[in-house]
């Protein structure tokens, strides 16, 4: 695999997977490009972990294919992939460096190379002093960092992280984000599954929302947000004036303490006129075009789907 080319493409094509009578994934398809952070989102039980396990070749699809750069996944070695599962664990009595070297060598690294890289990352994450410590002597946070290192020590082409930020303090979240940013710059594929929509919004370029075994939405984050833009505005005033509710040509969507989310009724009033009218009565602290958050889109889509089913 040439790491310098832009060819990294992971493609999931029409994958179906069921466990006994339960259909977990029904015709899942998506495509991830190198240099892209891909967010796999969905409520609990949507099939995110199953999808990741299939990309990692731990599970096999009942039908459909997974390709990486045009080669079927089951023909490829695990060395191109790195994985941080949601439920984490390490060998409690082993030494940190031994575990990291073991995982490194399982991915075709030489012991020496694995050791050097492990020490480099331990240093980078500020836990170099624990190199020779036993895992069970360490705090949970440090153990989690060690698992990160184990996942990307061998510099995989595709890195899959299941709920990577849970349990990390803000400082370490920032350090991790830096590392991931660097990784992305090398034109590699980063797949993240998370429930934390604000995190996903910050770091994902591309998301795929799955629910009840099916893709609900798939596309670049910006495009999705654009798609769900409601031409709504957000205004925050100083002091409490029920001014907006007094205007006939405005439809209020949400009302906060001193803030409103609203849309203009078609052809009733221009935005400039509205702002002028408001400024006459109160000072505007904040005004912006309202962009729906992923969180909102997520909830809306899931609710819509539930209503359709009902």
């Amino acid at each position: 695999m040439n790491k310098e080319t832009n060819e990294n493409i992971l493609e999931v094509r029409n994958v179906i997977k069921s466990f006994k009578e339960t259909l977990v994934l029904n015709g899942l398809s998506f495509k991830v490009q190198g240099g892209e952070t891909f967010g796999l989102l969905g409520p609990n039980g949507a099939g995110k972990t199953t999808t990741m396990r299939m990309i990692m070749n731990i599970l096999r699809p009942d039908s459909g294919e997974i390709y990486f750069n045009g080669t079927p996944r089951n023909k490829l070695e695990g060395v191109h992939f790195g994985y941080l599962p949601e439920e984490r664990g390490l060998y409690p009595r082993a030494r940190v460096i031994d575990v990291l070297v073991y995982f490194g060598t399982l991915n075709n690294m030489t012991s020496r190379k694995a050791e050097v890289e492990a020490i480099r990352y331990l240093d980078r994450l500020g836990i170099i002093e624990y190199t020779d410590a036993r895992i069970n002597e360490l705090s949970k946070g440090i153990q989690q960092k060690i698992q990160f290192i184990a996942a990307f020590l061998h510099d995989p082409e595709v890195l899959i992280l299941d709920e990577p930020f849970t349990g990390l303090d803000p400082i370490n979240q920032t350090v991790l984000l830096e590392i991931l940013e660097e990784y992305k710059k090398k034109n590699k594929i980063l797949i993240i599954s998370t429930h934390m929509m604000d995190q996903a919004e910050k770091i994902c370029d591309h998301i795929c929302l799955i629910n009840q075994a099916q893709v609900v939405i798939d596309g670049p984050v910006d495009a999705i947000r654009k798609q769900f833009r409601e031409d709504a505005y957000y205004i925050e005033l100083e002091g409490n004036y029920p001014i907006l509710s007094e205007l006939d040509n405005v439809q209020i969507l949400e009302e906060g303490k001193n803030s409103y989310k609203f849309v203009l009724k078609r052809g009733a009033i221009s935005l400039a006129d509205l702002l002028k009218k408001v400024e006459e009565k109160a000072r505007i602290r904040r005004f912006e075009v309202f962009e729906p958050s992923l969180h909102d889109i997520f909830i809306r889509l899931i609710q819509e789907q539930a209503e359709e089913k009902a």
């Binding site: 070749n57 992939f81 060998y91 399982l106």
Partner: peptide, 17 residues
């Protein structure tokens, strides 16, 4: 038993069959 209970098995199975 250990690898299964502490879930290391999932990482291992992603690298080796």
């Amino acid at each position: 038993l250990l690898e299964k209970s502490n879930r290391v098995i999932e990482v291992l199975l992603s690298y080796v069959n």
